[in-house]
Amino acid sequence: MNAWVLAAIVLVLGGIVPCLLVSLRGSAMEGLVALELGGVISALVFLLLAEGFQRQSFVDLALMLAVLSFVGALAFVRYVEREI
């Protein structure tokens, strides 16, 4: 395990776990914000892991996640703004 992977683990535990907790406990809107933040943090973790595995060609995944989580969030927002 190198520093990149260690940083990824720290980011998962310190970043995505709180997002999971908030999406469980909070209101729908808070959960949505947590999901968005989780998407951003996951993209960062993908970057760190691609670096940590020494496979830089896998940064595509982070790029895709960054773009797609925005589109997915838009779907949620358009629903939540009408229903809540």
Binding site: S57, F58, D60, L61, M64, V67, L68, V71, A75
Partner: peptide, 17 residues
């Protein structure tokens, strides 16, 4: 590289959506 018809196809669809 990783990817292919399925993943790319969904992204193309996402552009229209």
């Amino acid at each position: 590289t990783p990817g292919g018809g399925f993943q790319g196809g969904v992204i193309l669809a996402a552009a229209l959506i």
